[in-house]
């Protein structure tokens, strides 16, 4: 039974975007701060810091999770994916990212990383998610620029593209 006292910093080992990493953090550190401040992975943004805005959403064991509502210590042994892990190869956009650019689904971009991680998880689990399901999924995110319509369009376009690729590979 590991005990982390409030004064210490402790090693936390987990998978981040396919790589095993070990980072040191005090017990009270949030996963957002571990990612950004300790590991320097600043793609994950921090908005409200109490679970409302969705900007910090990452994937933990394949599920979309608010990184600001998870203690860094709770990441021990987890498989974590952030927006840095979305591109299939360096400099290449994933179909979802490309659709966001194509459909102007971002303006200031602050909310984008979180929304990408949420939609990526949804489309991986439910490849033929309905537009309603996509909208419901987006209700966990705040975007103050786009009015959401281009985001829904981009998600549907990415879904069509992913299905096409799936069919071509079948």
């Amino acid at each position: 039974m590991p005990k982390l006292s409030r004064e210490g910093r402790y090693a936390i080992g987990f998978r981040l975007n396919g790589q095993e990493v070990t980072a040191h953090a005090p017990g009270r550190m949030l996963l957002t701060d571990l990612l950004r401040h300790v590991l320097g992975e600043t793609g994950t943004h921090v908005g409200c810091e109490h679970g409302v805005c969705g900007a910090c959403t990452v994937q933990v064991d394949g599920e979309p999770v608010r990184a600001c509502l998870m203690l860094a210590a709770q990441a021990e042994g987890a498989d974590i994916r952030t927006v840095e892990g979305l591109e299939p190869a360096a400099g290449e956009l994933s179909p979802l990212q490309a659709a966001f650019r194509e459909h102007f689904a971002l303006q200031c971009g602050f909310c984008t990383a979180g929304i990408l991680m949420s939609l990526d998880a949804l489309l991986a689990r439910i490849p033929d998610a309905s537009e309603d399901a996509i909208r419901e999924h987006l209700s966990g995110h705040l975007c103050r620029c786009t009015g959401y319509a281009p985001i829904v369009k981009a998600a549907l376009a990415a879904q069509a593209q992913l299905k096409e690729e799936e069919a071509a590979n079948a």
Partner: peptide, 12 residues
């Protein structure tokens, strides 16, 4: 907007 310090116990 960060938690105040606490001791953390992970029960198995």
């Amino acid at each position: 907007m960060k938690p105040a310090p606490f001791d953390y116990v992970r029960a198995d």
